[in-house]
Write a protein that binds this DNA or RNA. Structure first.
Ligand SMILES: [Mn+2]
Ligand SMILES: [Mn+2]
Ligand SMILES: [Mn+2]
Ligand SMILES: [Mn+2]
Lengths: 220, 220
DNA sequence: AAAATAATTTAGACAAATCTAAATCATTAT
DNA sequence: ATAATGATTTAGATTTGTCTAAATTATTTT
């Protein structure tokens, strides 16, 4: 078990995140994701390639090797377990957990994380509804539908929210929408792509396109 | 609230620890404590002096300023709270907590630490019996006596152990001696400075000079 | 009070992680 | 097919934290 620097870990995690969309990640995209400069990315890519954590030929973009993916999933596991801990045990709100977990995730000690996992009761998802990899690096990726794409009159359950800001949290709390809330789409308005939904036992209300595109659901 | 690097924090903590014995800390002592070279210490002392965290004139040794002491106590607070968490909540043994806490202590977020403190029930001492500074940096230093100096036939209670290794833990567990155990000294043997003690409800037994010098007690 | 010894600092170097500016490669439009 | 544009890499510099070896200062012995 090799240990990686905080910087290396942040690069690996970012590549993993971007990898979802496309098969190969570009220098500029990664620089933007990490709020750094392309030249810094190239330097780090050489280093990570030398450590066999990614496939990389100059000018060709890059993608994680199997080992790189394993390391990235380990970081994501730590991050999300700490987020769960902060929300569940220390009463942090949804929008506060990420920043702290960004630091805690770099404390790399298998026993610490596995014991924390056990202590928390082996949670499957973090406070934002994102899945937590298990101690073998397995992460169950449930197929989720964007609320904006949900067919009319079918009942679904909120499983995650892709924006983690306090702004969206404020709005969701106001609307009593949480991870697990059941809802259905009653009507779509083509004027502004807003939709009327019915959530829980509340009266129907409308939500903006911006919000419906941020909420992910699955059928119940 | 300024933030300090992991390296700066480790220096401050080490100076605080050494400061207990003498009024001023020397370059060589600090280098030895931190397993580094005297030249590296000098470099860092210049930096910490520039940040007004310590008093330092070349060749004259150094000591923490009030601000430096405050920062050091903050680090010690984080370290010991995490040690308590690991022992109490994650079932780590006494000898395992320090190493992990060495990393966790550098995650510096006041809300995290104050909430952790609250979650743990505001513990006063860490698993080794060392006091935990409160959120204002106050640390109650109870006057402790080394077991080797305890008068004959006076009852005392174990409050801390200055060695944190698994070797001493093994021995103490075997003897059923823990933080809080009541004991009294029955006899001293000048041949090897061993002593016979009576602990709890056990039959009297002897302990080595090495062990008695590591255990600290107070009168009950 | 010198000389010897020990402690400390300085000088110069290195690795990691970053940056800016220049050079190079790839892609797109004419 | 060439020129223009955009993406990427290289070159060279900077900061932080460390090191070794040499120089300096302090302390101890004779
Ligand atoms: Mn997060
Ligand atoms: Mn999350
Ligand atoms: Mn400790
Ligand atoms: Mn301790």
């Amino acid at each position: 078990m090799v240990n990686y620097s905080t910087s290396e870990e942040n690069y690996l995690k970012a590549i993993y995140r971007l990898n979802g969309a496309e098969a190969t990640v570009s220098t500029n995209d990664l620089a933007q994701e990490l709020q750094t400069k392309p030249a810094s990315v190239t330097d780090m890519m050489k280093k990570l390639k030398a450590k066999k954590l990614l496939h990389y030929q100059p000018y060709q973009g890059f993608r994680l090797t199997a080992e790189g993916t394993k390391v990235a999933l380990g970081i994501i596991r730590r991050h999300r377990l700490w987020e769960f801990f902060l929300a569940e045990k220390l009463r942090f709100t949804w929008d506060e957990v990420h920043e702290v977990a960004e630091d805690l995730e770099h404390v790399c000690n298998k026993k610490l994380i596995d014991r924390l996992d056990e202590y928390l009761g082996f949670p499957r998802v973090d406070p934002h509804g994102d899945p937590i990899p298990d101690m073998n690096g397995k992460m169950e990726v449930s197929k989720k539908i964007c609320l904006s794409d949900l067919p009319l009159n079918s009942t679904a359950q909120v499983i995650s929210v892709s924006d983690h800001s306090s702004d969206i949290l404020e709005l969701l709390e106001h609307m009593h929408i949480h991870i697990g809330t059941r809802l259905e789409v009653r009507k779509r308005f083509s004027f502004d792509d807003s939709m009327e939904i019915k959530a829980g036992r509340q009266a129907a209300f409308t939500i903006s396109r911006q919000l419906s595109e941020t909420i992910f659901v699955h059928f119940v």
